[in-house]
Design a protein around this nucleic acid. Structure first.
Length: 424
RNA sequence: GCGUCGGUGGUAGAGUGGUCAAUUACAACAGACUGUAAAUCUGUCGGCCUUAGGCCUACGAAGGUUCGAAUCCUUCCCGACGCA
């Protein structure tokens, strides 16, 4: 992997860059489509590509459980398996420590609504019996499969091994995404663990890369790969991103950025569950510390206003489930805010979702038709809405990128957000 | 014509003397969703008053029994089935 900054955004941490991977170039900042189970839900790779997507992110935990990372490896890696020819990434399963752990069955999400974090009562004192599918142990995390109840113990080494089998171009260190409801003492403890896991992830990664390199030189000497696998993994050497955590606490965020920076990662992820208004400060604290020449990925974030914020604060990559989840659930993005397609007013509206939108859905279908599909619970509904949403977000990031190149980022930001947020 | 069973809110369908403005499902309407346990979830869903609560109109129609009726009785109307 090779990363180059092409232009910086004056007066901020923002930049435009090029990220080269074995499967192609990513022009950054870029929005990464989430394809957890080696599929961007409801979309064919052609639709994903035509939406302008440059890179797809799969998930270690999900693919390990089903179909199993060995199968993905035998298929020739996640990209080949799912017929996505471009760059790929995999998340480490660290987010599932949160979503299946502290957040399981609770009203806590990636971005919390609570304005005053002091109102968030640390729950760990009275909910020790609360059901969780993920429990943190000494060495790693035990997951109870939501598919069949079986128990799986994921360590940093295991996560990296799985990710090497999945074969993406960029992989992530195993981390613990903490709940914002945890107290400071726990945040410190969790951060220590994430840092320790970062070192172990890196160590295992280097070991596997070395192993692959050795195998590669052997197979070159012998003329061919004799493993019988459909794809030759020898020489496979993905980029590994370390993940910065630290919650909303400035000292912890900075400490984490300093520590992760000190390790030999190829790039960085910024993780955590935030209160919305804490996000920009946290990102800024971190990116002021992280080395400029390496790419940064803001994990799981992707509302339009977040994208402007992140890019201005030096984020190069974003991924988020919202375009596809909102789409499947009937909400679409527009320049003037979100629209719920099942609303009665669209039943007889024969205009496209957005009249000047160039996406496949807007070029061929009306609001009335898409509303009809949703009311009729037809599969195409989610596909058409997701197609539009992915196009909308991917292209928003592309336009932001262009605005930096054109020296009008701040004008573009102000104009866009004024229109987007005016109805909310 | 006789007999049997049945007619409940937009629909289907519970309830069979008070705890019933009426379980539930669907539909309808509105909302939520940020490294995907998610094609999911939540709320409203007779009318009126500002929520707690209160008032009114309601279980085919009209009478009646009862302190009290969607629930019991009578007649009528409608439907299904059986026998003529």
């Amino acid at each position: 992997m090779y990363f180059k900054i092409e232009k910086k955004l004056k007066g901020s941490l923002g930049r435009v860059g090029i990220l080269e991977t074995p499967h192609g170039v990513i022009e950054t900042p870029a929005f990464v489509a989430v394809g957890t189970k080696a599929t961007v839900k409801s979309l064919s790779p052609e639709l994903v590509r035509d939406a302008g997507t440059q890179v797809v992110l799969g998930n270690t935990y999900h693919l390990y459980l089903q179909p199993g990372d060995e199968i993905v490896r035998n298929a020739g890696g996640i990209g080949k398996f799912m017929n996505w020819l471009g760059p790929t990434m995999t998340d480490s399963g660290g987010f599932q420590v949160f979503s299946l752990g502290a957040a399981y069955g609770k009203d806590i999400s990636k971005v919390t609504k609570v304005t005053d974090p002091s109102l968030m009562i640390p729950e760990r004192f009275d909910d020790s019996d609360a059901p969780r599918l993920a429990k943190i142990g000494q060495d790693g995390v035990s997951f109870k499969s939501h598919l069949d109840g079986s128990i799986h113990y994921i360590t940093p080494e295991k996560s990296i091994e799985i990710q090497h089998n999945l074969g993406a171009d960029i992989i992530f260190a195993f981390d613990e995404c903490t709940s914002p409801a945890e107290d400071l003492r726990y945040q410190e403890e969790a951060l220590e663990r994430t840092h320790c896991w970062a070192e172990r992830s890196l160590k295992e990664h280097k070991r596997l890369v070395q192993e692959n390199t050795l195998r590669h030189s052997h197979s070159v000497l012998e003329g061919q790969d004799r493993t019988g696998r459909s794809e030759d993994f020898s020489g496979y050497s993905p980029a590994l991103f370390g993940i910065v955590q630290g919650g909303r606490e400035e000292s912890l965020r900075k400490k984490s950025a300093e520590f992760i920076k000190s390790l030999d990662f190829d790039g960085f992820g910024i993780g955590g569950s935030f209160a919305k208004e804490d996000m920009s400060t946290a990102v800024k604290w971190v990116n002021e510390i992280l080395p400029e020449e390496k790419p940064r990925h803001l994990l799981g974030i992707g509302e339009p206003e977040d994208l402007f914020m992140g890019i201005e604060n030096g984020v190069d990559l974003f991924d988020c489930v919202l375009p596809t989840r909102l789409g499947r659930n009937g909400t679409v993005y527009t320049k003037t805010g979100k629209m719920i397609m099942t609303n009665a007013k669209f039943r007889n509206d024969f205009t496209p979702i957005e009249k000047d939108c160039e996406c496949y859905s807007c070029k061929h279908y009306t609001r009335a038709y898409i509303a009809h599909l949703f009311h009729g619970k037809e599969m195409l509904a989610g596909t058409l809405a997701s197609t539009h949403n992915l196009y909308f977000i991917v292209n928003l990031v592309k336009k932001i990128r262009q605005s930096i190149l054109d020296d009008n980022f701040f004008e573009f930001k102000e104009e866009s957000l004024k229109n987007y947020l005016k109805n909310s």
